[in-house]
Amino acid sequence: MAQDLRILSSIAKVFLRKVGRVHERRQSNPEVGEVLQITEEGTNRTIFYLVTKKASYQKPNYEDVWNGLCSLREVLLAEDLRKLAIPKLACGLDNLD
């Protein structure tokens, strides 16, 4: 796990430390544009991971970010979730606006 932390962005590191369980979702080999969902045990909070690139060292493009957001919208509507907190996406190290 320590090796994995070195290649993750700073926001991914924070989520991995606070939430964990990311690796169990990665093993399902998600496609770019999919949404991974983790529900925290003992809370009603759900964490959604947008898959915007195949590998952590790659750069996403606007189309893949858009497809991830569309997938997220479908999940939110299907589960009747009405509140969402989301950080800025694909900026910083990913170099998108």
Rank of each mutant, 00 (worst) to 15 (best):
A90S: 14
L5G: 02
V51K: 02
S9I: 04
R82W: 03
P60R: 01
R21G: 13
R6Q: 13
C91R: 02
A55T: 01
I7F: 07
D80R: 15
V35G: 03
E34W: 00
E24C: 12
S71I: 05
R26Y: 13
D64Y: 04
A2H: 05
C91M: 10
L69N: 07
A90Q: 07
G20Q: 08
A85R: 09
P87H: 06
A12C: 09
D4N: 10
G68K: 05
S28G: 04
I47F: 09
Q3E: 13
E79P: 00
R17V: 13
R45Q: 13
D97H: 02
V19Q: 04
I47A: 05
R45N: 13
Y49N: 11
S9C: 06
Q27P: 00
N67W: 08
N61L: 01
I38C: 06
T46V: 11
S9G: 15
C70H: 08
V65D: 07
G42K: 08
L81N: 08
N95S: 11
R82S: 14
L84D: 06
G68F: 02
E31H: 07
R25P: 00
R21T: 10
K83S: 14
T39L: 07
L89A: 09
L96T: 05
T39H: 05
Y62V: 12
L81W: 03
L81C: 14
R21H: 14
S56K: 06
K88E: 02
N61D: 14
T52E: 01
V22H: 03
V22W: 11
E34I: 01
R26I: 15
Q27N: 14
A12P: 02
D80K: 15
M1W: 03
K13F: 01
S71A: 15
I47R: 00
Q37W: 05
W66P: 03
G68S: 11
N61H: 01
V14R: 02
V19G: 00
N61W: 03
V32D: 00
E24S: 15
Q3Y: 05
R82M: 12
D64N: 11
A90N: 03
N67F: 01
G42V: 06
T39I: 05
E24K: 15
D94E: 11
E79V: 06
C70G: 08
K54G: 06
D80S: 15
E40S: 04
L16P: 10
E63H: 03
T39K: 13
L96E: 03
F15R: 04
A85W: 04
S10Q: 07
G33K: 01
E63C: 03
I86C: 15
K59D: 11
R25E: 09
V14F: 07
R26W: 13
L50I: 07
I11T: 09
S71P: 02
M1T: 09
L16M: 12
L69H: 03
T46G: 05
A55G: 10
V14E: 14
K13T: 04
I86W: 05
L84N: 09
R45G: 05
E63D: 12
V75I: 14
S9M: 05
C91K: 05
R25Y: 06
L93M: 10
V19F: 10
K83L: 11
N61V: 12
N44V: 13
Q27S: 14
V75F: 08
G33R: 02
E41L: 11
L89Q: 02
N29T: 10
Q27Y: 04
A55D: 10
